[in-house]
């Protein structure tokens, strides 16, 4: 229903999109030898590198497993340290389960929510600024930099250490984190609750995840052709994923700048 005009408009736009000045499809070459020889050289170089690397550097091997002796810090493999690092800012159900699931699902839906027909099969920033910016932010700024922090800057007690600092397991870091209702001006509100659910946090989460995107839709959708093409369903998914992703840097900022731990506390879970 809402789909049909959207699709047609997309097809229309694809036809109208300026064709990049590159030779047409007829420009083909034989895979043998032009592709196969590159693959061959590439494989040989890679195998040589791997061989030299493996001759020179031994895989790590520590003492036998001992369930009674927990090392400090215990780190997950490096490619999961972004998730472990998120544990500083979110509870495990969020950092360890919900966010990883949303990352995977979010990646999978990319082709279905990015309906911009331009930039298919060539490098361009100009023709898809929003998509490329969002992806680079998520991949480089969030994922890669959290991994770098986890690998190089975290020591005993998951405290921050510079690489040249000695790991002191007795380093004392004052824990002055407070939940939002007990911070600054919010103290004046007296933390009202219904059924033990904090109303302040509930309001903020609803404002952020629901009111904000809905209000934006009603203000802009009349005048923005991009929003009209997206349609409410796709727009909703984009908004939800984007705001959830931005939730991480927001919580990092609140923690680092104001020592705020939870925005919202309920008897079942905390955000």
């Amino acid at each position: 229903m809402a789909e049909a005009p959207g699709r047609a408009a997309v097809a229309e736009k694809a036809k109208a999109a300026p064709k990049p000045k590159i030779k047409p499809i007829e420009d083909k070459v034989h895979c043998w030898p032009y592709l196969v020889r590159s693959e061959f050289v590439c494989s040989i170089i890679l195998m040589a590198l791997l061989m030299v690397w493996s001759l020179g550097i031994d895989a790590p091997m520590e003492e036998p497993a001992n369930p009674t002796n927990t090392p400090n810090p215990s780190k997950a493999p490096w490619y999961f340290l972004g998730l472990q690092e998120m544990l500083v800012y979110f509870d495990p159900w969020m950092a360890g389960v919900v966010l990883p699931t949303l990352i995977i699902v979010g990646l999978m839906v990319i082709p279905f929510i990015d309906i911009n027909p331009k930039g298919n099969g060539y490098y361009t920033f100009q023709e898809r600024k929003f998509a490329v910016t969002t992806f680079l932010f998520g991949f480089l700024v969030l994922w890669v930099s959290l991994i770098v922090t986890g690998v190089f800057l975290r020591g005993p007690g998951w405290n921050l250490f510079w690489p040249w600092e000695v790991w002191d397991p007795h380093k004392v870091v004052a824990l002055t984190n407070v939940d939002l209702p007990y911070w600054g001006p919010f103290k004046l509100l007296g933390n009202p609750k219904i059924l033990d659910v904090e109303l302040l946090g509930l309001t903020l989460v609803i404002l952020y995840l629901i009111v904000l995107p809905v209000a934006f839709w009603f203000r802009k959708s009349k005048t923005s052709p991009i929003l009209q093409e997206l349609g409410p369903l796709r727009y909703g998914i984009v908004a939800f994923l984007l705001l959830t992703m931005l939730g991480l840097p927001i919580k990092m900022f609140l923690r680092i700048a104001f020592n705020i731990k939870y925005i919202w506390v309920t008897p079942w879970f905390n955000v």
Binding site: E63, P64, A65, W93, V97, F269
Partner: peptide, 24 residues
């Protein structure tokens, strides 16, 4: 490899499953 590195990395990694909504 069943050394200290491996069991504790896997312990940390799988601890998250404890916190799965409903199932942990």
């Amino acid at each position: 490899p069943w050394d200290q590195l491996s069991i504790w990395a896997v312990t940390v990694g799988t601890n998250m499953a404890r916190a799965t909504p409903l199932l942990g």
